[in-house]
Every structure is written in C-alpha cells, then in structure tokens.
Simulated assay, not measured.
Amino acid sequence: MLFLVSIKKKMLEVNGLIKKYDKQNAVNNITFSLQGGEVVGLLGPNGAGKSTTMKCIVGLLRKTAGEVSIGGHDHLSVEAKKLFSYIPETPNIYDLLTVREHMQFIAQAYGVKDWKERAEVYFEMYDLADKQDKLGRDLSKGMKQKVSICCALLPDPRILFFDEPMIGLDPKAIKNTKKIFKTLKEEGKTILVSTHLMESVEAIADRIMIMKEGNIIGNDTLSNLKANFNGGNDSTLEDLFLELTKDE
C-alpha cells in the first residue's frame, strides 16, 4: 500500500543574511524561512531593518553576506523572479505609461494571457476603472500605490512581499487590501507583510516576526509569543510589540 504524505515546501529560506552600510549592520546575521501557504507579519520600529531585509530578498539591495533562496532557487535567478511579486513602501511606476499599459507590460513580462479580465477586476476593486488612460506621472501617491498592488497581483505569484502596503491608501482600498490578504491565504499563497498597522495582519498571520536593530527578537505564532509574554493571553499584538521593542 502506498502512503502519500503532504509536506509543505519551503518557499523562502534566508540563512545568515547580513547587510552592512559602511561598518554598521542594518541587518545582523538573520535566519528564517517561510513555508508554502504561510502568512507572516514582519513587525518592528522604524529603522529595525524590515525594508532592508525585504529589498535584499528581492534583489533590490546587494546583501553583504548570507544565502537567500525562493522556491528552491537562488533569489536572483530568473526562476525565482517568476515566483514572487514585491510591493514597495514607495511605489515606483513609469511616468509615461498609462495605468492600463502598466498592466499590459506586466502581462507581457510574465506571460499572463487573460490579463485584461484580471486587470478589470483589480481596477474595480481599487477604483481605477475610470483612470486607465492616466499617465503614471499624473497619479497621486495613493493611486500609484494602487497601481503597484494591481501589477503585483496580476501574474498570480506564489509568494508576495508587501512592504507597508497600506501607506497612502484610502479607507476603502485598505479594506479591500485586507480582503486580498485573506483571499491569498485561502489560495495557499505565501505572504511576508511588513506593516505598522498590526490589526491588518493579526487576524490572518500564521506567525509574527519582530525585528529590532537588525535582529529578529521574536519569531513564533501569536499565541506562543503571548504565552511567553508577561501580559498573558489577554494582551494584544500591540502590547506584545511594545514590550519586546522597548528600550532597555
């Protein structure tokens, strides 16, 4: 008799990641991994190293040391880049492409054949349907962020990196982005989301990872972190975060 065992594949592996600026470590020899279908909230005060960590993972910053693999491939390989999308804190879109042309560009780059239908869904969700012909340079920061999110979702990636995705969004867009998090989780996608809006990840995160001064000081399920926290299970994620990141 043949027994099949379902094993979750590691979608992201970070081993001994270091990023130095001059002699200062912005990221200090951190190691962690994300399983397939796992949602992890990355928290930390300003300057903790969250954005630097994400930028090193996706290849926007050159790491000083360490190994990073995505879906079993080196993070800088074409094979890895086909698997993930990255939504930066500050949206970077093309000044002379329209909203629709941004989606078409992503579709052609990733070979998305049904992109028009998928794009329409995201345009409606983010109130971009009547702005499809606007150039990137004519959009507000919030609109640019919406376009950035739509472009990231279009190729249906297996792993998504969100760096402060709510920055600049209006309340409706924030609500819809939270819904997208839940939908992506239900679809088994792997998500690493860095945010200061803790309620946006508290309900859906399988695990919370907290950084301070370039180090990971907490990395566990919320219930396990609370169990080791003086406030007990009645404490909130905010209470836990403030306690772990307070100055000694």
Score class of each variant (00 low, 15 high):
198 M>V: 14
182 K>M: 12
120 E>V: 06
177 T>Y: 06
184 L>K: 02
113 K>W: 02
128 L>E: 04
192 L>Y: 08
118 R>G: 03
196 H>N: 12
144 K>A: 00
133 D>F: 07
113 K>V: 11
191 I>V: 13
183 T>D: 12
123 F>L: 09
173 A>N: 01
123 F>Y: 15
177 T>W: 05
114 D>A: 09
196 H>V: 09
177 T>D: 01
188 G>A: 09
180 I>K: 03
186 E>Y: 09
184 L>E: 02
142 G>Y: 07
134 K>M: 15
162 F>Y: 11
119 A>S: 13
162 F>M: 03
152 A>P: 00
193 V>P: 02
161 F>H: 01
172 K>M: 15
181 F>A: 05
154 L>I: 04
161 F>T: 09
184 L>V: 08
137 R>L: 13
157 P>N: 12
185 K>Y: 12
132 Q>E: 15
183 T>H: 12
159 I>N: 09
156 D>H: 09
185 K>N: 11
148 S>V: 08
157 P>S: 05
200 S>Q: 09
173 A>D: 06
118 R>M: 07
184 L>D: 01
198 M>I: 15
183 T>V: 12
167 I>E: 11
129 A>Y: 13
120 E>D: 13
171 P>K: 12
112 V>W: 02
112 V>L: 09
114 D>M: 04
128 L>G: 02
136 G>T: 10
161 F>N: 04
182 K>W: 06
155 P>W: 01
195 T>F: 07
110 Y>F: 15
168 G>V: 04
176 N>W: 01
158 R>T: 10
140 S>G: 08
153 L>G: 00
167 I>T: 14
141 K>D: 05
125 M>D: 03
198 M>H: 07
123 F>K: 01
108 Q>F: 10
114 D>S: 11
163 D>W: 03
158 R>F: 07
107 A>N: 06
182 K>D: 11
164 E>F: 10
126 Y>N: 00
165 P>K: 03
110 Y>S: 10
188 G>Q: 03
155 P>G: 10
160 L>E: 01
121 V>N: 12
187 E>M: 14
109 A>N: 09
168 G>Y: 05
114 D>V: 03
180 I>F: 04
152 A>H: 03
116 K>I: 14
